[in-house]
């Protein structure tokens, strides 16, 4: 923000080294205290010195993070590593506090299990988690996401050919995106049965409109000049579409795909609250919550979070490969 760089008294290298040592010490301290919290004397009724240690570590983590942010790294791999390290350290601190507070105060696991218990549950119940993942993600989310996005894309192309359709569909699509579309879940479960078919249907409906709206907006994105050029080449609608307007629309299409990746997961999980065979992430969440097995619920949420992030990340990587020419990738370096 400010162009003035603060003058530094000691050489930058020694500051960097000192900060790195402090970071490593803080992380090691957190690991040690988290292990300590599992000791029988500490778990449940932690003494005052334990909490003093926790607060000291918290302050240390904050200080280290503050230093890390201020490190005079201009750019390059070291700055990139810093940009990863800072949020990771922040997340570690949050998980550390969650762990020691849960253990130290002896919070009952039916209220809030500590991260270590969730990890243990993840390791123990792999078979169930994999079956749920297969049912929800592989059978419902991915096909629904593909189908819904493809339909939205196709209708957007059709609307592009028929201007009347576009004028009518675009306001409708914007309107529908504000509606709680998830409410169609019970209807779809009634129509298509308890198995994955109904979840695919919900996901298709949820992902259709964002894709439609984004693609229609993207097809408008090609500039006037370029379009005139295509016209002067006497290019047909199809050629203009293929050579100019679809490439220009790609960032919008990918935006739609990214929005849809989250929507698809939410749609499939919530649709399972309305009825499923006895497998699936949404089913597991709603039944295990009823049995107060919160560690299993959290384990399921971890799976959902990892799956959602990977899904999103894969789309983002595909976007980067397909739209490498787009200014936002060139500008992002500088910003």
């Amino acid at each position: 923000m400010s162009a003035v760089a603060a003058p530094l008294a000691p050489p930058a290298a020694s500051i960097t080294a000192r900060t790195l040592v402090a970071t490593a010490a803080t992380v090691a301290g957190m690991a040690a205290v988290a292990t300590l919290a599992h000791r029988p004397g500490v778990a449940g009724n932690a003494p005052v010195w334990f909490w003093a240690l926790v607060v000291a570590l918290w302050i240390a983590a904050w200080g280290v993070n503050d230093r890390l942010t201020r490190l005079p790294l201009a750019s390059g791999p070291s700055a990139r590593a810093r940009d990863v390290a800072v949020p990771v350290l922040f997340g570690l601190t949050c998980f550390f506090l969650w762990e020691v507070v849960c253990l130290g105060f002896g919070v009952p696991t039916v209220l809030m299990p500590p991260p270590s218990a969730i990890l243990a549950k993840l390791a123990v119940s792999q078979a169930t988690l994999v079956a749920d993942f297969r049912q929800t993600f592989v059978r419902s989310v991915v096909p629904g996401w593909l189908l819904g996005s493809a339909l939205g894309f196709a209708v957007a192309l059709l609307a592009d050919r028929v201007p009347f359709l576009r004028r009518g569909l675009l306001p409708l699509g914007n309107f529908v995106s504000a509606l709680p579309v998830i409410g169609i879940a019970p209807i779809m479960v009634m129509w298509f049965g308890f198995d994955w078919h109904s979840k695919v249907a919900v996901v298709v409906v949820m992902t259709f409109f964002p894709m439609l709206v984004n693609t229609v907006a993207g097809l408008e994105a090609a500039g006037r000049l370029e379009r005139d050029l295509m016209r002067s080449y006497a290019a047909s609608w199809g050629t203009t579409l293929l050579k100019l307007r679809l490439p220009a629309a790609l960032p919008f299409v990918f935006n739609g795909l990214k929005i849809n990746s989250t929507l698809a997961l939410i749609g499939a999980i919530v649709a399972e609250f309305f009825g499923t065979p006895i497998v699936g992430m949404g089913f597991r969440i709603s039944t295990e919550v009823g049995r107060m097995q919160l560690d299993m619920v959290w384990a399921e949420i971890v799976v959902a979070a990892v799956a959602g992030t990977l899904f999103y990340g894969l789309i983002a990587m595909a976007e980067r490969a397909a739209t490498f020419w787009h200014p936002s990738y060139r500008r992002r370096r500088a910003a």
């Binding site: 809030m112 989250t262 939410i266 999980i269 619920v297 949420i301 959902a304 959602g308 999103y312």
Partner: peptide
């Protein structure tokens, strides 16, 4: 956190 299905946490909040 935008990329994870946050709505899945809803039952936990309700029950806890």
């Amino acid at each position: 956190s935008q990329t994870i299905p946050i709505l899945a946490v809803a039952p936990i909040v309700i029950v806890v």
